[in-house]
């Protein structure tokens, strides 16, 4: 039996051109570079990484908004990357995305009703009364009063808009949801409302979700497993609590230790690993292990060969050759 979602050596490269009249390829940005991942049905995978690590590109590649350069995306055994544009379009209702910015992800000229009607009817035309009924149900599900359906997005607050965006993503009854930083633009008190909502929906509807965030505490709370991404590659993957509490990869350690804890007592005890410098440019990634220029445990071998993502402990994989030693 095949997995629900499988990413097989997934690669997304962007060619960089220089010059306007005589365009020449100046290199490629390897935004997603050989990602190997699989998800069970109903699983929530948290994907963390810093800006520019390729997590949003990965999301859009799985969504096939960007077609991959190499590798494959299997959804319930079907290879999405082999399909032609028409076939992809027919598959789209099965996987939906929730975006970061609730102010940009809703068409300002469409009422909530119209936006949801459009999304529902991707599964076929419905009679008006049935449609309105369905829209009302959806709004109730995401915690909005149905009598607001004739309003426009600008008449709602950020948190409410994100609820509308979630309702739209649910409308085609997808099996897979990819949430790209869905709470990053929201205030703390609103964040927790949205996180609760997403968790409840996943449970009730048996949804599989990839939850992308730069906030490791949110990801730890919401996901079953966590994958850590750096410069287009996976550094570590494993059960959420284990990855955060006992990180294997030096990058994960640094990432976890960099987050201030909102509790002065634990905060004072926090062991900090402060990395030097910024993440390198994906246009010119370092040789060997991409993390080696910032890694406190670097040795010569790290600069030469790219380490594979290997099982280091049961259920836990990491891409580092020094895990046994440190």
């Amino acid at each position: 039996m095949s997995r629900f979602l499988e990413l097989n050596e997934l690669k997304t490269y962007f060619p960089i051109f220089l010059g306007t009249v005589f365009r020449r390829a100046a290199g490629t940005v390897k935004a997603v570079d050989g990602i190997q991942l699989d998800l069970e049905k109903g699983e929530i995978l948290g994907l963390v990484g810093e800006s520019g690590c390729g997590k949003s590109t990965l999301a859009r590649t799985v969504m096939q908004l960007i077609r991959n350069t190499g590798g494959a995306v299997y959804l319930e055994g079907r290879n999405l990357s082999e399909l032609n544009p028409r076939q992809v379009r027919a598959e789209r209702p099965n996987f939906q995305m929730i975006f970061q910015d609730p102010y940009a992800s809703l068409n300002p000229r469409m009422t909530v009703h119209d936006a949801l009607a459009e999304a529902i009817q991707t599964r076929g035309k419905l009679r008006k009364a049935v449609l309105t009924q369905k829209i009302a149900e959806l709004l109730t599900t995401v915690g909005l009063p149905p009598n607001q359906m004739r309003r426009y997005p600008h008449e709602f607050s950020g948190g409410q808009r994100q609820r509308i965006a979630i309702a739209r993503a649910l409308a085609p009854e997808p099996k897979l949801i990819i949430a790209d930083e869905p709470v990053s633009a929201l205030d703390v008190s609103i964040q927790s409302q949205i996180i609760n909502l997403l968790l409840r929906l996943c449970r009730e509807r048996q949804l599989t979700m990839i939850f992308i965030s730069h906030d490791i505490s949110v990801v730890k709370y919401i996901s079953d497993r966590i994958a850590v991404m750096y410069l287009g590659r996976l550094m570590e993957i494993g059960p959420a609590a284990a990855v955060v509490e006992t990180p294997l990869h030096p990058y994960t350690r640094a990432l976890v230790s960099a987050v201030p804890i909102p509790d002065p007592i634990r905060e004072r005890a926090r062991q900090r690993i402060i990395l030097q410098g910024d993440p390198p440019s994906p246009l010119d990634p370092p040789s060997g292990c991409v993390f080696h220029p910032r890694c406190p445990y670097v040795k010569e071998a790290c600069k030469r060969a790219r380490p594979a993502l290997e099982e280091k402990l049961p259920q836990r994989r990491a891409a580092c050759i020094r895990i046994g030693e440190i």
């Binding site: 915690g143 009063p145 009598n147 607001q148 008449e155 607050s157």
Partner: peptide, 23 residues
């Protein structure tokens, strides 16, 4: 989770609230 209610109205009445389009 409660219905946060719309910004100005705050009414949870049954009748639909008509929105104001950008136009």
């Amino acid at each position: 989770i409660s219905f946060p209610g719309a910004r100005d109205t705050g009414t949870h009445a049954e009748e639909a609230v008509a929105g104001t389009s950008l136009w």
